[in-house]
Simulated assay, not measured.
Amino acid sequence: MRPHRFRSVLVAAVVSVMALSGTAPAVAHDAKTADHAAPASTNSLASLTGLFTERLLLADKVAAAKYGTDTPIDDPVRERQILDDVAARAVGLDPDVVAAVFRDQIEANKLVQRGLYARWDAHPDERPTERPDLAKEVRPALDLITTRLLAALQETASVRDDAFCQPRLRAAAALSAYVHRLDVLHLKGLERALPSVCTVASGG
């Protein structure tokens, strides 16, 4: 699917989920409740999109830790270490596919960081008042998500290799966006996180 169409499809899917569930955004904070209403295949992919969303939300802390310092958003050395690590840990999976999925997560994270930098530059009153510790607080959380993502990729291998993966992935992403109440910036990040999930090209 073309990137510019994703947001409109995602919004439409969220509206559909709201209509079917009969719940309002103000109370849509229970991921288990939302996932329970989804088809099994969508529910399975929601394990991935939920983790993608958790990782995206951690981008806020990464940005807060780096903003106003000499630490760049782009860190090619660490990124390469992450990709090599997940490829080596991709037991039973194509390491190139796993690396591609994680490359998308890294790029999605950086997209959100850049968006936050631009927001804070334009609105100094919105700048973070605390600087999280990257080594002690943020990276251990990211490492935990990495382990969970590897397990979720293993569990969803057959669904991701299915011809209907793309629409199911969009539905799962809509559920995750709805549950976590993502703003426009994080929706763009979620869009960027998805391209390598399905291993069969969409026929549409």
Rank of each mutant, 00 (worst) to 15 (best):
A172H: 07
R78C: 04
Y67E: 00
P195H: 14
R148S: 06
L190V: 00
V9K: 14
T69F: 09
R168M: 14
A87F: 05
P95K: 01
F164V: 13
T69Y: 09
T156C: 03
V200I: 06
R131W: 03
L48I: 14
L58A: 07
L48G: 10
V15R: 08
N109P: 00
A28L: 11
E191R: 14
A38G: 08
A12S: 07
V27D: 07
R2W: 11
S47H: 12
L83Q: 13
L48D: 03
A59C: 02
R192N: 15
P72A: 10
V91W: 05
R139K: 10
P76K: 06
E155L: 08
A65W: 04
A141M: 06
S202H: 12
D85S: 13
R160W: 03
V97T: 11
V98N: 10
P128M: 04
A12C: 08
L182R: 13
D104R: 09
H29M: 02
L185M: 10
R192Y: 12
S47W: 11
R170Y: 14
L194G: 13
A141R: 04
K188A: 10
T42W: 00
V27E: 09
Q105K: 04
H29R: 09
D74W: 01
P195N: 06
K110E: 12
S16G: 12
V179D: 02
L57F: 01
D104W: 12
K110Q: 12
L150V: 04
R160S: 11
